[in-house]
Simulated scan of single mutants.
Amino acid sequence: MAGDQKAKAKKEQAKGKVKEAVGRAVGNERMEAEGRAAQSKGDARQAKEKTKDVFKH
């Protein structure tokens, strides 16, 4: 389960980076902001998983 969540976090981060880059390229501020939000969500999920790993050991 934890591996699945880590992969999901990485996927969210990657999708966010792509969306932000596309938004910047086409001049769409909303898309750029959505991309940053997706990256932040992925970062938060990754931090949560790392914290869970610390307390497992």
Rank of each mutant, 00 (worst) to 15 (best):
M1W: 09
M1Y: 09
M1F: 10
M1E: 13
G3S: 11
D4S: 15
Q5D: 13
Q5G: 06
A7P: 04
K8H: 10
K8G: 04
A9N: 00
A9S: 03
K10C: 10
K11F: 08
E12G: 02
Q13S: 07
G16W: 00
K17M: 04
V18F: 08
K19Y: 01
K19E: 03
E20F: 03
E20Q: 09
E20W: 03
A21L: 05
V22Q: 10
V22S: 09
G23P: 00
G23Q: 00
R24H: 12
A25C: 05
G27A: 03
N28M: 03
E29L: 11
R30K: 15
R30A: 15
R30P: 02
R30Q: 14
M31S: 06
M31I: 07
M31V: 06
E32D: 10
A33F: 04
E34Y: 02
E34A: 02
R36Y: 02
Q39P: 02
Q39S: 09
S40V: 12
S40I: 09
K41C: 04
K41W: 01
D43N: 13
A44M: 08
A44Q: 10
A44G: 06
R45V: 11
R45M: 13
R45H: 13
Q46A: 12
E49W: 02
E49V: 06
E49A: 07
K50Q: 11
K52Q: 12
D53E: 12
D53F: 04
V54M: 13
V54F: 13
F55L: 13
F55G: 09
K56S: 12
K56P: 03
H57F: 12
